[in-house]
Amino acid sequence: MPVPYRVLRAGEETPGTVTLELVPEHVALNPFRPGQFAMVYAFGAGDAPFSVSGMDGDRLTLTVRSAGAVSAALARARAGGTLGVRGPFGTGWDEPAGRDVLVVAGGIGLAPLRPLVRRTVAARERYGEVSVLIGARRPGELLYNGEILGWREAGARVLVTVDRPEPGWADDVGVVTNLLDRAVFDPAVTDAFVCGPEVMIRVVARELAGRGVPAERIRVSLERTMHCGTGHCGHCQLGPLLLCQAGPVVSWARARHPMSVREL
């Protein structure tokens, strides 16, 4: 059963994308880990799966891009409104165990990675190099602009590239893989975390594996049609994986083959 959560704050990230901060109206769900997802109900519109983009005690943060009936309803949510939430579901990002940390995000894929980045920069002294590579379509579609400076100040090397620059854009232009040469990491002792459009994930993961990052240490977050969240309905099947339970975060060692099979 969905648990009622109240919208504490709703802020526009970019045109069509909002970040919602939620608090439980009565009882909170079990704590979410970075990378896990929730089934979110916009009453009267339906439910859909969303990765959590932040968690702080009982509070949950979701970043939603308006693309269909449910997400559009969520994007219209305002402070004081009520949503239903089920979860937490699926696997999350493992805590980095290697010396260096490399995060690669494309578009809205930065949302599931945000809690991981925040946790990593908060414990910056535990790691060697921390690089966050972000790709977006346009400068105006970059998420969390207000936070990126803080990540840099905390010691992360944050590099940003866009496909279509706008006047005044002074950062990089091109695909996110172009940034890999300027990220500092030792492949053998790096934990990599990748989320974004599936083609981007494949290209980045292959590039990282080709540079010597062990496939088990490249984690990717995969998008499929999550529905029940409990591994019963099969909507989210990717070859041998039911991603609502075995994923969404899986290692490249497990994802590489099914992601290379047509029609999966």
């Binding site: 799966p49 990765s51 449910v70 578009g107 599931p112 981007m200």
Partner: peptide, 23 residues
């Protein structure tokens, strides 16, 4: 290769909503 990937306009709004699947 980079150019071809960009031609796909991967970050465009056609794909997915918040992340995990159907809107």
């Amino acid at each position: 290769r980079a150019c071809r990937i960009r031609l796909l306009d991967l970050y465009g709004p056609a794909n997915g909503a918040g992340r995990r699947g159907p809107p």
